[in-house]
Structure formats: structure tokens, C-alpha cells
């Protein structure tokens, strides 16, 4: 009896450990680029499906902006960003547009993107004032939405693309001492998740596949 209870408890513990290790690994994933400073920017953005852009039918628009804490009227600006995707891409817009908070294009900010084609993402050095937001475009190899792909004898569910953005920004040293002028250096933020593309249509094949999979699973359980 005791050994049974012990085994049950250890089983639960092992399950918790499995889950906890996954969460810990994901947390480590977000903490990779280290060096994020006390004045780290606060960035957010999104992905939107756009099959009519320069990237063709698999195109996705991305947009994001960052707020960087200001120190004594001195703005800490974005000097570059890198965008990494969960699926390989074969197009990125070389010249994304930077907009001001009021929606007008910025007259001072510009970013020029570079990277591999095909590849896991791209980097865009340039200048972007904190508070402004950037809008660009990329295209995935295959549909950017969740879909079924035929592999060998069966179908495989390919998840929707996700993107993470990391920004390089101007940081300050000695900012607390009013007699010493601040020293500027660059820091990297942690990756911000832009999520999955909005506007993906409902996939009938995928729904049928899921229904079939569930029915198969139920039948298997009944049988066993």
C-alpha cells in the first residue's frame, strides 16, 4: 500500500518536474541575449496576414514599437532590431517604414534590413526614436498559418509562424551623478514575442483532420 502511494506520489512529482523543466527552459529562452539593463525598453507588436504585399501569397506584416525610459529629457533610442521567426522565411522587406505615434511617417528614422534568404530571420540597423513604431513585411516558406502538409504517408500539422523581436538600444551609465555627463553604450533587450499572424482563415482540412484524429483516439481508448 505504502509502495503504491509512494509510486503515485513520485509519478506526480515527475510530471511536475517535467512541466517545470519545460517552463524553466522557456524562461531561459527569453533570457538568452543577456545584458538587458535596468532601462530596458518595453516593446510590443503584432503579426498580420498580408498575401498581397511584396512577399507574395505567404506574406506577413509585422509591426512593433518600444518605449524606452527617458532620463533627464534624454531619450534612449533604438539603433537596430533583429526579428527571428519560428518558421523559415524566403523574403523580408529591405526598407521597413517607421511611423510616429500620430501615424505620420517619421522624417528622421530609417532602418535597412539584411539577412539570409532563406533564413530564420533578419536584422535591421538604423535609427528609430523611442515611442515610434516600425512596419515591415516578410514571407514564410509555405503558408504562414496553421496548416496540414503531406509528409510521406500521412499529414503533418504545421503550426502558424511566430516571431520574436530583439532591439539594440542606447543605454546610459553614470546617469545618477548630475556632475558627470552620461556615458552612452548599447544594450540588447530580451526577445519580445509578436505572436501568431492575425487574420488566418479557418482551415476546413485541418478541422477534418482534427476530428478524424480525435475519433481515432477515442476508438483506440475504447479498444484498450
Amino acid at each position: 500500500m505504502n509502495s503504491r502511494r509512494g509510486a503515485r506520489h513520485s509519478g506526480r512529482r515527475a510530471r511536475y518536474l517535467g512541466g517545470a523543466s519545460l517552463v524553466a527552459a522557456c524562461a531561459a529562452l527569453l533570457a538568452i541575449p543577456g545584458g538587458a539593463s535596468a532601462v530596458a525598453p518595453d516593446c510590443s507588436g503584432k503579426l498580420t496576414l498580408n498575401g498581397h504585399g511584396e512577399g507574395g501569397k505567404n506574406g506577413v506584416d509585422y509591426s512593433f514599437g518600444c518605449k524606452v525610459p527617458t532620463i533627464e529629457n534624454d531619450k534612449a533610442d533604438i539603433q537596430a532590431f533583429s526579428l527571428v521567426t519560428s518558421r523559415r522565411i524566403d523574403y523580408f522587406q529591405p526598407d521597413p517604414t517607421v511611423f510616429q505615434p500620430n501615424g505620420d511617417p517619421s522624417s528622421t528614422d530609417a532602418l535597412n534590413c539584411e539577412g539570409p534568404i532563406p533564413g530564420p530571420g533578419f536584422g535591421c540597423p538604423g535609427a528609430m526614436t523611442a515611442g515610434n513604431h516600425v512596419v515591415g513585411h516578410f514571407a514564410t516558406i509555405g503558408s504562414p498559418c496553421r496548416h496540414l502538409e503531406r509528409r510521406g504517408a500521412g499529414n503533418v500539422v504545421i503550426p502558424a509562424v511566430q516571431a520574436w523581436v530583439t532591439v539594440t538600444f542606447q543605454d546610459h551609465k553614470n546617469d545618477l551623478d548630475p556632475n558627470t555627463p552620461p556615458t552612452y553604450y548599447t544594450s540588447q533587450s530580451h526577445p519580445y514575442n509578436l505572436g501568431k499572424p492575425r487574420g488566418c482563415p479557418a482551415n476546413k482540412r485541418l478541422r477534418a483532420h482534427r476530428r478524424h484524429h480525435r475519433a481515432h483516439h477515442r476508438a483506440h481508448r475504447r479498444h484498450s
Binding site: 509510486a7 515527475a14 510530471r15 523543466s21 527552459a25 541575449p33
Partner: peptide, 27 residues
């Protein structure tokens, strides 16, 4: 219990693979 340990290990391994794959610049 052994199966769950393996699942836990596999989850950690998968997360580590994702960690390496998603790191900027990693092919």
C-alpha cells in the same frame, strides 16, 4: 512513472532544441 520521467526529459530536450534553434543567428 518511468514513462513520465522520459516525457519530462523529452520536454526538456525539446525546449533545449527550441532554445538553440530560435537563438538569433542560429541556422
Amino acid at each position: 512513472l518511468g514513462r513520465w520521467r522520459r516525457v519530462g526529459g523529452a520536454a526538456l530536450l525539446t525546449a533545449a532544441v527550441v532554445l538553440v534553434a530560435v537563438a538569433p543567428g542560429a541556422p
